[in-house]
Protein backbone atom coordinates (compact mmCIF):
# COMPACT_ATOMS: atom_id res chain seq x y z
CA UNK A 1 0.00 0.00 0.00
CA UNK A 2 1.37 3.44 -0.81
CA UNK A 3 0.56 7.03 0.02
CA UNK A 4 -2.01 7.45 -2.78
CA UNK A 5 -3.93 4.34 -1.72
CA UNK A 6 -4.00 5.14 2.01
CA UNK A 7 -5.19 8.71 1.37
CA UNK A 8 -7.81 7.40 -1.05
CA UNK A 9 -8.94 4.94 1.59
CA UNK A 10 -9.12 7.70 4.18
CA UNK A 11 -11.63 9.68 2.08
CA UNK A 12 -13.81 6.56 1.78
CA UNK A 13 -13.63 5.89 5.53
CA UNK A 14 -14.58 9.47 6.37
CA UNK A 15 -17.52 9.23 3.96
CA UNK A 16 -18.76 5.89 5.27
CA UNK A 17 -18.70 7.30 8.81
CA UNK A 18 -20.78 10.35 8.02
CA UNK A 19 -24.35 9.32 7.41
CA UNK A 20 -25.38 12.98 7.44
CA UNK A 21 -23.21 13.60 4.38
CA UNK A 22 -24.66 10.63 2.58
CA UNK A 23 -28.28 11.56 3.15
CA UNK A 24 -27.78 15.34 2.96
CA UNK A 25 -26.22 15.13 -0.48
CA UNK A 26 -29.25 13.21 -1.74
CA UNK A 27 -31.80 15.84 -0.78
CA UNK A 28 -31.12 18.42 -3.45
CA UNK A 29 -31.01 16.11 -6.49
CA UNK A 30 -34.13 14.29 -5.29
CA UNK A 31 -35.95 17.58 -4.88
CA UNK A 32 -34.96 18.71 -8.39
CA UNK A 33 -35.96 15.36 -9.84
CA UNK A 34 -39.38 15.31 -8.22
CA UNK A 35 -40.27 19.00 -8.58
CA UNK A 36 -38.99 19.54 -12.11
CA UNK A 37 -39.54 16.00 -13.37
CA UNK A 38 -43.17 15.87 -12.45
CA UNK A 39 -43.83 19.63 -12.51
CA UNK A 40 -42.46 20.36 -15.98
CA UNK A 41 -43.06 16.85 -17.33
CA UNK A 42 -46.49 17.51 -18.91
CA UNK A 43 -45.27 20.74 -20.57
CA UNK A 44 -42.22 18.95 -21.94
CA UNK A 45 -44.41 16.16 -23.34
CA UNK A 46 -46.85 18.67 -24.89
CA UNK A 47 -43.91 20.27 -26.71
CA UNK A 48 -43.31 16.91 -28.33
CA UNK A 49 -40.06 16.23 -26.51
CA UNK A 50 -41.14 12.97 -24.90
CA UNK A 51 -40.83 11.82 -21.31
CA UNK A 52 -39.13 14.53 -19.22
CA UNK A 53 -38.03 12.19 -16.40
CA UNK A 54 -36.28 10.10 -19.04
CA UNK A 55 -34.51 13.26 -20.25
CA UNK A 56 -33.84 14.74 -16.83
CA UNK A 57 -32.49 11.72 -14.91
CA UNK A 58 -28.94 11.77 -16.38
CA UNK A 59 -28.77 15.50 -15.58
CA UNK A 60 -29.84 14.84 -12.00
CA UNK A 61 -27.24 12.08 -11.62
CA UNK A 62 -24.65 14.56 -12.91
CA UNK A 63 -25.91 17.08 -10.38
CA UNK A 64 -25.44 14.59 -7.54
CA UNK A 65 -21.85 13.97 -8.65
CA UNK A 66 -21.12 17.67 -9.26
CA UNK A 67 -22.23 18.82 -5.82
CA UNK A 68 -20.61 15.98 -3.87
CA UNK A 69 -17.39 16.34 -5.85
CA UNK A 70 -16.93 20.10 -5.78
CA UNK A 71 -17.87 20.45 -2.11
CA UNK A 72 -15.27 17.82 -1.21
CA UNK A 73 -12.75 20.62 -1.68
CA UNK A 74 -13.87 21.93 1.69
CA UNK A 75 -12.17 18.85 3.16
CA UNK A 76 -8.80 20.45 2.48
CA UNK A 77 -9.85 23.55 4.40
CA UNK A 78 -11.15 21.40 7.26
CA UNK A 79 -7.92 19.42 7.36
CA UNK A 80 -5.99 22.64 7.41
CA UNK A 81 -8.17 23.92 10.22
CA UNK A 82 -7.95 20.72 12.27
CA UNK A 83 -4.24 20.42 11.59
CA UNK A 84 -4.23 17.07 9.82
CA UNK A 85 -3.02 18.65 6.59
CA UNK A 86 0.35 19.37 8.22
CA UNK A 87 0.85 15.69 8.96
CA UNK A 88 0.66 14.94 5.25
CA UNK A 89 2.65 18.00 4.19
CA UNK A 90 5.79 17.06 6.19
CA UNK A 91 5.58 13.37 5.30
CA UNK A 92 8.29 12.05 2.97
CA UNK A 93 5.94 11.82 0.00
CA UNK A 94 5.51 14.20 -2.92
CA UNK A 95 2.67 16.71 -2.96
CA UNK A 96 1.52 15.11 -6.20
CA UNK A 97 0.88 11.80 -4.41
CA UNK A 98 -1.07 13.59 -1.68
CA UNK A 99 -3.24 15.58 -4.07
CA UNK A 100 -3.82 12.51 -6.23
CA UNK A 101 -4.83 10.30 -3.29
CA UNK A 102 -7.21 12.91 -1.93
CA UNK A 103 -8.75 13.78 -5.27
CA UNK A 104 -9.26 10.19 -6.38
CA UNK A 105 -10.74 9.39 -2.95
CA UNK A 106 -13.22 12.26 -3.12
CA UNK A 107 -14.02 11.41 -6.74
CA UNK A 108 -14.83 7.85 -5.69
CA UNK A 109 -17.13 9.20 -2.99
CA UNK A 110 -18.83 11.44 -5.57
CA UNK A 111 -19.23 8.45 -7.88
CA UNK A 112 -20.93 6.52 -5.09
CA UNK A 113 -23.23 9.50 -4.42
CA UNK A 114 -24.05 9.67 -8.12
CA UNK A 115 -24.88 5.97 -8.11
CA UNK A 116 -27.26 6.44 -5.19
CA UNK A 117 -28.93 9.31 -7.06
CA UNK A 118 -29.21 6.96 -10.04
CA UNK A 119 -31.09 4.47 -7.84
CA UNK A 120 -33.39 7.29 -6.69
CA UNK A 121 -34.06 8.07 -10.37
CA UNK A 122 -34.93 4.42 -10.99
CA UNK A 123 -37.38 4.60 -8.09
CA UNK A 124 -38.94 7.72 -9.66
CA UNK A 125 -39.65 5.81 -12.84
CA UNK A 126 -36.51 6.32 -14.92
CA UNK A 127 -35.57 3.39 -17.17
CA UNK A 128 -32.18 3.19 -18.96
CA UNK A 129 -32.69 2.82 -22.70
CA UNK A 130 -29.79 0.44 -23.35
CA UNK A 131 -28.67 -1.76 -20.48
CA UNK A 132 -25.46 -2.85 -22.27
CA UNK A 133 -24.36 0.82 -22.25
CA UNK A 134 -24.39 0.92 -18.44
CA UNK A 135 -20.58 0.47 -18.19
CA UNK A 136 -20.17 3.46 -20.53
CA UNK A 137 -22.47 5.47 -18.25
CA UNK A 138 -20.33 4.49 -15.28
CA UNK A 139 -17.20 5.58 -17.14
CA UNK A 140 -18.76 9.00 -17.82
CA UNK A 141 -19.80 9.30 -14.19
CA UNK A 142 -16.23 8.53 -13.07
CA UNK A 143 -14.67 11.12 -15.40
CA UNK A 144 -17.26 13.74 -14.38
CA UNK A 145 -16.45 12.95 -10.73
CA UNK A 146 -12.71 13.41 -11.24
CA UNK A 147 -13.16 16.65 -13.19
CA UNK A 148 -15.52 18.17 -10.61
CA UNK A 149 -13.42 17.04 -7.64
CA UNK A 150 -10.42 18.69 -9.26
CA UNK A 151 -12.35 21.99 -9.32
CA UNK A 152 -13.10 21.65 -5.60
CA UNK A 153 -9.48 20.76 -4.82
CA UNK A 154 -8.25 23.88 -6.60
CA UNK A 155 -10.57 26.14 -4.61
CA UNK A 156 -9.82 24.31 -1.35
CA UNK A 157 -6.07 24.70 -1.92
CA UNK A 158 -6.30 28.45 -2.47
CA UNK A 159 -8.81 29.51 0.19
CA UNK A 160 -7.63 30.01 3.76
CA UNK A 161 -10.87 29.91 5.63
CA UNK A 162 -14.21 28.21 5.64
CA UNK A 163 -16.51 31.22 5.25
CA UNK A 164 -15.44 31.96 1.70
CA UNK A 165 -15.72 28.43 0.40
CA UNK A 166 -19.49 28.03 -0.12
CA UNK A 167 -19.72 31.50 -1.69
CA UNK A 168 -16.98 30.85 -4.22
CA UNK A 169 -18.22 27.36 -4.91
CA UNK A 170 -21.81 28.45 -5.51
CA UNK A 171 -20.46 31.02 -7.92
CA UNK A 172 -18.84 28.17 -9.85
CA UNK A 173 -21.22 25.26 -9.33
CA UNK A 174 -24.56 26.87 -10.12
CA UNK A 175 -23.56 28.31 -13.53
CA UNK A 176 -21.86 25.03 -14.40
CA UNK A 177 -25.01 23.17 -13.53
CA UNK A 178 -27.63 25.47 -15.07
CA UNK A 179 -25.76 25.87 -18.37
CA UNK A 180 -24.94 22.20 -18.77
CA UNK A 181 -28.09 21.03 -20.55
CA UNK A 182 -28.87 18.99 -17.42
CA UNK A 183 -32.33 20.57 -17.18
CA UNK A 184 -33.09 21.54 -20.77
CA UNK A 185 -32.01 20.38 -24.25
CA UNK A 186 -29.17 22.26 -25.96
CA UNK A 187 -30.95 25.16 -27.74
CA UNK A 188 -31.03 24.88 -31.54
CA UNK A 189 -30.59 28.60 -32.19
CA UNK A 190 -27.16 30.11 -31.72
CA UNK A 191 -27.62 32.49 -28.82
CA UNK A 192 -25.95 33.23 -25.53
CA UNK A 193 -27.31 30.10 -23.88
CA UNK A 194 -26.24 27.96 -26.83
CA UNK A 195 -22.71 29.33 -26.50
CA UNK A 196 -22.64 28.98 -22.68
CA UNK A 197 -23.71 25.35 -22.92
CA UNK A 198 -21.04 24.60 -25.51
CA UNK A 199 -18.27 26.31 -23.54
CA UNK A 200 -19.24 24.49 -20.34
CA UNK A 201 -17.17 21.32 -19.89
CA UNK A 202 -19.92 19.80 -17.75
CA UNK A 203 -22.27 19.84 -20.78
CA UNK A 204 -20.10 17.14 -22.33
CA UNK A 205 -20.48 15.07 -19.18
CA UNK A 206 -24.25 15.46 -19.17
CA UNK A 207 -24.37 14.68 -22.89
CA UNK A 208 -22.22 11.58 -22.51
CA UNK A 209 -24.23 10.29 -19.59
CA UNK A 210 -27.53 11.08 -21.32
CA UNK A 211 -26.32 9.36 -24.48
CA UNK A 212 -25.36 6.26 -22.54
CA UNK A 213 -28.48 6.13 -20.36
CA UNK A 214 -31.31 7.58 -22.45
CA UNK A 215 -29.83 7.39 -25.96
CA UNK A 216 -28.85 10.19 -28.35
CA UNK A 217 -25.51 11.97 -28.07
CA UNK A 218 -25.68 15.66 -29.02
CA UNK A 219 -21.93 16.18 -29.40
CA UNK A 220 -20.87 12.59 -30.05
CA UNK A 221 -19.47 10.06 -27.59
CA UNK A 222 -15.82 10.60 -28.63
CA UNK A 223 -16.02 14.37 -28.36
CA UNK A 224 -17.64 14.05 -24.94
CA UNK A 225 -14.96 11.74 -23.61
CA UNK A 226 -12.03 13.66 -25.09
CA UNK A 227 -13.25 17.01 -23.74
CA UNK A 228 -13.84 15.59 -20.25
CA UNK A 229 -10.52 13.75 -20.04
CA UNK A 230 -8.50 16.72 -21.34
CA UNK A 231 -10.19 19.19 -18.97
CA UNK A 232 -9.82 16.80 -16.03
CA UNK A 233 -6.12 16.32 -16.79
CA UNK A 234 -5.51 20.07 -17.04
CA UNK A 235 -7.35 20.64 -13.75
CA UNK A 236 -5.30 17.94 -11.99
CA UNK A 237 -2.08 19.63 -13.11
CA UNK A 238 -3.41 22.96 -11.79
CA UNK A 239 -4.33 21.20 -8.51
CA UNK A 240 -0.85 19.75 -8.12
CA UNK A 241 0.62 23.21 -8.62
CA UNK A 242 -1.77 25.00 -6.23
CA UNK A 243 -1.40 22.26 -3.64
CA UNK A 244 2.38 22.49 -3.78
CA UNK A 245 2.04 26.18 -2.85
CA UNK A 246 0.25 25.43 0.42
CA UNK A 247 2.35 26.29 3.45
CA UNK A 248 2.15 23.95 6.39
Amino acid sequence: MNAVVILWLRQLKLYSRSRARMIGALGQPTLFLLALGFGLGPTFARAGRGDYVQFLAPGIVTMGILFAAVFSGSGIIWDRQFGFLKETLVAPVSRLEIVLGRTLGSATVALIQGSIVFVVCLAAGFRPAHLPLLPLALLFMAVIAIMCTAIGTAVGSVLQDMQGFPLIINFIVLPLFFFSSALFPVPDSQGAVWLAVRLNPLSYGVDGLRGALSGGFEFGVTTDLVVLVVIAAILLVIDAYLFSKIEA
Partner: peptide, 30 residues
Protein backbone atom coordinates in the same frame (compact mmCIF):
# COMPACT_ATOMS: atom_id res chain seq x y z
CA UNK B 1 11.69 14.25 6.41
CA UNK B 2 12.36 10.56 6.89
CA UNK B 3 14.98 11.40 9.54
CA UNK B 4 12.72 13.35 11.88
CA UNK B 5 9.39 13.05 13.62
CA UNK B 6 7.43 16.14 14.57
CA UNK B 7 4.76 17.08 17.08
CA UNK B 8 3.27 20.40 16.06
CA UNK B 9 2.06 23.12 18.36
CA UNK B 10 -1.56 22.34 17.44
CA UNK B 11 -2.94 18.82 17.06
CA UNK B 12 -2.49 17.34 13.61
CA UNK B 13 -4.49 14.15 14.03
CA UNK B 14 -7.55 13.10 12.07
CA UNK B 15 -10.34 13.08 14.64
CA UNK B 16 -12.63 11.02 12.42
CA UNK B 17 -10.16 8.13 12.41
CA UNK B 18 -9.31 5.85 15.34
CA UNK B 19 -5.99 6.00 17.16
CA UNK B 20 -4.79 2.86 15.37
CA UNK B 21 -5.89 4.22 11.98
CA UNK B 22 -4.00 7.46 12.56
CA UNK B 23 -0.93 5.38 13.37
CA UNK B 24 -1.37 3.17 10.33
CA UNK B 25 -1.80 6.11 7.98
CA UNK B 26 1.46 7.57 9.23
CA UNK B 27 3.35 4.30 8.87
CA UNK B 28 2.21 4.00 5.25
CA UNK B 29 3.14 7.61 4.46
CA UNK B 30 6.59 7.00 5.96
Amino acid sequence: RRAFGIVFQDPSLDGELTAAENMELHSVLY
